[in-house]
Design a protein around this nucleic acid. Structure first.
Lengths: 197, 197
DNA sequence: TGCAGCATGTAATTTGTTACATGATTAA
DNA sequence: TTAATCATGTAACAAATTACATGCTGCA
């Protein structure tokens, strides 16, 4: 599955311009299938060339022209087939986890910073998804509710894992849940990795 | 960050061949940074060309020759810098979620199948990570423990979310927000997470 | 006899990202 | 006046996947 197919799927739900699709990618899809204009516009051109979508140009007053794409029967068919086929892939690629794996190559304060930054980012993600959900009111389709809820649940789980396990990496002395280390000094933190790097 | 950098990082922890590195990617890294031979071998060649690693060929009896790569000072330096820099990216791309978003385009039994398959896959993932963890005994470095634990925690959270919310998509009676099916002893619905982290 | 493991790589292709290129309107 | 929103695209580049290509050993 690629972004082209996803564009096709979105057009099954209603006609839209490339710009419109981008907004959908930014809101509902961002946390599990991001895409930019650089992928979307060529996709639409390609779909149109294959007869899977139709395009009609609309002039607008005081706004640039827009090209509105609508699905064709062949397109709807093609999407259904694409959706059916193949065992779905679920791929994660995380530089945060790479950094954590190599935590002993980072300076302690940089590590702390990363963990905090990650945690904060996750919190913002939950907030973001929350407001998207509210934006739908009560009319959000089941699929939308499912994926938004998923995003929130997982972001929350990640944040919680970080909270509960960060001291595994930061090497706080006798750190127990609830006891916070004072930083700033960073002297005593016995970090046992080769000093001359 | 790319696979080349990750190879460099792994070589910081000890010398290895491309084949060895692949095994590490298969075990510890698979759930957050997968890579195949097609990425690893060219990476090593490139790192060697740049003087970031050294290579020595070792003849073996009854086995193919192997090329063992070891990090150089420049390489260690380069890795540390790569690790420091940039706000880390954490990217998910899930065809499962795409399928769930478009659930109404799937035939009910195919949907059920996908949900079950996904759930099962997640369970296998946890089992896999568990056995990797056990393979380390007690000597697993903190970074390794952190990333393996992370993988398990998140896979578990996803499985739980699916359990608790699958009826949102499958249209089982009682899937309305007010009327959710209660599962024995199960925690609060992952759908209603506190925004504050 | 056949398959899994050991061990290396290349080349073509696919895919997506980034930077570039343009330009009007509207709200702060 | 500055920035954001609307709106479209292309071209160069980066990165990773897939298929191809080889061949021996040991086990069941």
């Amino acid at each position: 599955m690629d972004i082209k197919t996803l564009c096709l799927g979105l057009l099954c739900k209603g006609e839209a311009s490339g710009y419109d699709l981008k907004k959908q990618f930014e809101s509902t899809f961002k946390h599990f299938y991001p895409a930019g204009y650089g992928s979307i516009y060529p996709s639409l051109a390609d779909l149109a060339a294959k007869g899977l979508v139709n395009c009609r140009e609309m002039a607008q007053e005081k706004k640039p022209d827009r090209k509105v794409y609508s699905i064709t029967d062949a397109g709807r068919q093609a999407f259904k087939e694409a959706l059916q086929e193949a065992d779905p892939e679920h791929k994660l690629r995380s530089e945060y986890l790479v950094a954590m794996y190599f935590a002993d190559f980072l300076e302690p304060q940089r590590l702390e910073q990363m963990l905090s930054g990650w945690h904060e980012t996750l919190g913002n993600g939950v907030t973001r998804l929350d407001s998207i959900e509210k934006g739908f009111g009560n009319d959000a389709p089941a699929g939308t509710r499912f994926v938004l809820g998923f995003g929130k649940a997982i972001a929350h789980a990640m944040a919680q894992y970080i909270e509960e396990n960060r001291d595994m990496l930061t090497g706080t002395e006798g750190s127990r849940p609830g006891e916070r280390s004072r930083e700033t000094g960073s002297t005593a933190s016995a970090n046992n990795i080769e000093t001359r790097l």
